[in-house]
């Protein structure tokens, strides 16, 4: 069941259609990775989900209720944007007091417990901290809200590897213990692969595909094959990509790996192996079909 949805969401900025009847469905308790090239509309989508922007048409729903100007819906959410705002000269403790004044469900005990996880001096003005530490402060405050939905835009950008692991473990612990739903937008597909169980791929304001990670990986196969001379591949194969090194060909095909290998077995290949694709490869080859060609640059 979806906790966060958009239905035919449209947003235009000065004639440019940033979101083009976008449909999104984030299941409750999922860790949803939102991926897409630059300018796909991810940040614009996140701002709609956070209730900042008013859509031109379409709906943004949290548990079936519109989010825009809905204080109850917003109270259940926490948003960490890529560029976090703090009051000038405010420390993390000052921001905590402000959050406490706005969110009545702010958990001060949790804030104190998280002090051990985040190695920050919460009395120091946040603006004097490094970018990574500012991000840590943002996580510290957001997690203290105990939100039902956590929306993250490029969340681990600026964090060192140790802190990244720390942050993700805290987030996933909330997911596991409290059923928190997480939507995370990132370019770091390797990292998303480790944490996400659902993925949505955006391009040009549309959601191209939206699946669970396992379904996605089941739908595209990478097959290494060496065929006897004169043997042609079946023409009805949905080929996303093909490359060759000598007689060894690398095929990226749409379909279930087992079915594809069964079909190709008929050709009596000299060698054949199906290997799993990474999220990065799925992203590249899916978008390749959407006119976002990956250019081979020769230097």
């Amino acid at each position: 069941m979806a906790i966060l949805e958009t239905k035919k969401l449209v947003k235009t900025f000065d004639g440019f259609r940033a979101l083009d009847e976008l449909d999104l469905s984030v299941p409750k308790g999922a860790v949803y990775g939102l991926v897409g090239p630059n300018g796909a509309g991810k940040t614009t989508l996140i701002r709609h989900l956070a209730g900042i922007l008013r859509p031109d048409s379409g709906e943004v729903l949290l548990d079936g209720s519109p989010v825009y100007e809905n204080t109850e819906a917003k109270r259940r959410m926490a948003v960490i944007p890529d560029d976090v705002f703090y009051y000038t000269q405010a420390s993390t403790a000052d921001m905590m007091k402000f959050y406490k004044g706005v969110w009545s469900n702010f958990d001060v005990d949790r804030y104190e417990k998280l002090r051990e996880a985040f190695t920050l001096d919460d009395k120091k003005p946040v603006r004097t901290l490094s970018k990574g530490m500012q991000k840590q402060a943002a996580f510290w405050l957001a997690l203290s809200l105990r939100p039902e939905v956590l929306i993250l835009d490029e969340p681990v950008d600026g964090l060192d590897p140790v802190m990244r692991r720390q942050v993700w473990s805290l987030v996933l612990a909330d997911v596991a213990e409290n059923g928190t739903t997480v939507l995370v937008s990132s370019h770091n597909l390797r990292e998303l692969e480790d944490v996400c169980d659902h993925v949505g791929i955006m391009n040009r304001g549309k959601n191209l595909l939206e699946r669970s990670l396992s379904e996605l990986q089941d739908n595209v196969a990478k097959i290494l094959i060496a065929l006897p001379e004169g043997t042609e591949l079946p023409k009805d194969l949905e080929m996303l990509h093909e490359s060759a090194t000598g007689r060894l060909r690398t095929l990226i095909l749409r379909g279930r790996p087992e079915q594809l290998t069964d079909r190709l077995q008929i050709l009596e290949p000299l060698f054949m192996d199906a290997v799993p694709l990474s999220l990065e490869e799925i992203f590249i080859y899916e978008l390749g079909g959407a006119d976002y060609a990956v250019k081979n640059i020769l230097l």
Partner: peptide
């Protein structure tokens, strides 16, 4: 400023 606008309008406070 975009940053502060986004922050304040993400708060659970009606306009």
């Amino acid at each position: 400023q975009g940053r502060s606008t986004n922050f304040f309008h993400a708060l659970p406070v009606r306009r």
